[in-house]
Amino acid sequence: MNKFSIKDVNLWYNDFHALKNINMSIPANEITAFIGPSGCGKSTLIKSLNRMNDLVEGCKITGSILLDGQSIHGNIDVNALRKRVGMVFQKPNPFPMSVYDNIAYGPRTHGIRSRSKLNDIVEKSLYDAAIWDELKDRLKKSALSLSGGQQQRLCIARALSVQPDVLLMDEPTSALDPISTAKIEELVLKLKNSYTIVIVTHNMQQAVRISDNTGFFLLGEIVEYGETQQVFSIPKDKRTEDYITGRFG
């Protein structure tokens, strides 16, 4: 089952051709990793999947991206799309409010007002993000008082609070220490049973450890895309091999 089908996608930031003829399918309930050197387009592609690029001025996209067979462009509600396709960012970005309000913000946005329902959602989201035990006594505390790793798991919980199908993660561990990184990786592996996960990472070991499929990007093109095992052990393209063996990047 494919969650996303990406066909002939080209993307420009003004005159800069950031994505060139991208074709790929992202399977449901698996972890797909995007790797590649900085500026290769991997973050741009992930941000196209929930149309966060719409916010960038001068951004133009052609081709088609289908989510469960339905185009995400054209006449659809962008907010509904972003509710279905949640996102976790590179730097933990909790809102400057309490832990509880951070999680409740999403459901409240989508019209849930009942206190008991919100309580359930907050508890379940934090539980699913494996941070309930650490935070259950600190729900009223400001989210900004948490450590970086806790903040990032809080952001994952916040993304889960609106019950998305897909979780996009844009280098979610690049600002974290190794122990927090390990916790997040463990969490991501657990979440793949319920969600389709797309993760951008600079860390090739991380891609090997957690992903089922890996796409290698270079200068806006997708050089190689396949099962992680295959991409890292017997890459088909010379450039992939050079990158994963550390010859450039």
């Binding site: 907010n79 949640g86 960012f89 409010m97 916040r158």
Partner: peptide
């Protein structure tokens, strides 16, 4: 990053401005 976080949850611009940015 606050704006991204809010838009990423499917909040519209008005809600983002009123609930996140303005406070």
């Amino acid at each position: 990053t606050y704006r991204e976080g809010s838009f990423g949850l499917g909040a519209g611009r008005l809600r983002t401005v009123m609930r996140i940015i303005l406070p």
